[in-house]
């Protein structure tokens, strides 16, 4: 169970507004998060992962307090270890596909399985600059999964994939999520694209 109750100031060209989120997610559930640009979808994910702090509130994940302004608890991202798929991928330019996964985990069996899921086996020794946009995006997803996260935060994770590889990947991911019992939050502009994965949704406006 993941419980979030936060308030965070957002600055945009329209001025300041306050992002207020009070929501609970069942353990192992998959939720798509949608809403207009600038509403704070990415900020919500970054706040949960610990990259940025809310002004006030509480984040509790599987009975562990990650953040609480009242008791001044703020776990660093390293202790939260939420899998994170960045909108800009944030791949490491100096590492090959395989090195990305080896940086995250030492479990070679798991690495090989991930490479198969992302269909990146033939490109294991390639660096990101020699991958297509879709391959880069798949690598970003695999890297986040490499740590077998209990909570996975995905920011527009399928935007660069063609419909065919998207549905193939989503099918594979479904199995992995179930196996790992991962709770997943997916930010998307296009909620319909995830219909095969989940019906649960959350609107931020």
């Amino acid at each position: 169970m993941i419980s979030i109750d936060i308030e965070k100031k957002l600055k945009s060209y329209k001025g300041q507004h306050i992002l207020q989120i009070k929501q609970q997610f069942a353990a192992g559930s998959i939720t798509k998060i949608y809403g207009p640009s600038g509403a704070g979808k990415t900020t919500l994910l970054k706040t949960i992962a610990g990259f940025t702090e809310p002004e006030r509130g509480k984040i509790i994940v599987n009975d562990v307090v990650w953040f609480d302004t009242e008791s001044k608890i703020n776990l660093p991202p390293q202790k939260r270890m939420a899998g994170f798929v960045f909108q800009d991928y944030a791949l490491f330019p100096n590492m090959t596909v395989k090195q990305h996964l080896e940086y995250a985990t030492t479990d070679t069996e798991w690495i090989n399985r991930l490479l198969a899921i992302g269909k990146l086996g033939p490109f294991a020794t390639h660096k990101p600059e020699y991958l297509s946009g879709g391959q880069q995006q798949r690598l970003a997803i695999l890297r986040a999964l490499a740590i077998k996260p209990k909570l996975l935060l995905m920011d527009e994770p399928f935007s660069a994939l063609d419909p065919e590889s998207k549905s193939a990947l989503i099918n594979e991911l479904k199995t992995v999520f179930e196996e790992l019992k991962t709770t997943v939050l997916i930010v998307t502009h296009n909620p319909q694209e995830l219909d095969g994965l989940t019906k649960m949704e959350m609107n931020i406006s």
Binding site: K46, A49, F51, P77, Q78, R80, F92, A104
Partner: peptide, 14 residues
């Protein structure tokens, strides 16, 4: 990009 460090932190790296 800040996301480079953040990605590494989220993998548990110091």
């Amino acid at each position: 990009p800040a996301s480079l460090s953040q990605a590494s932190y989220s993998l548990g790296k110091s």
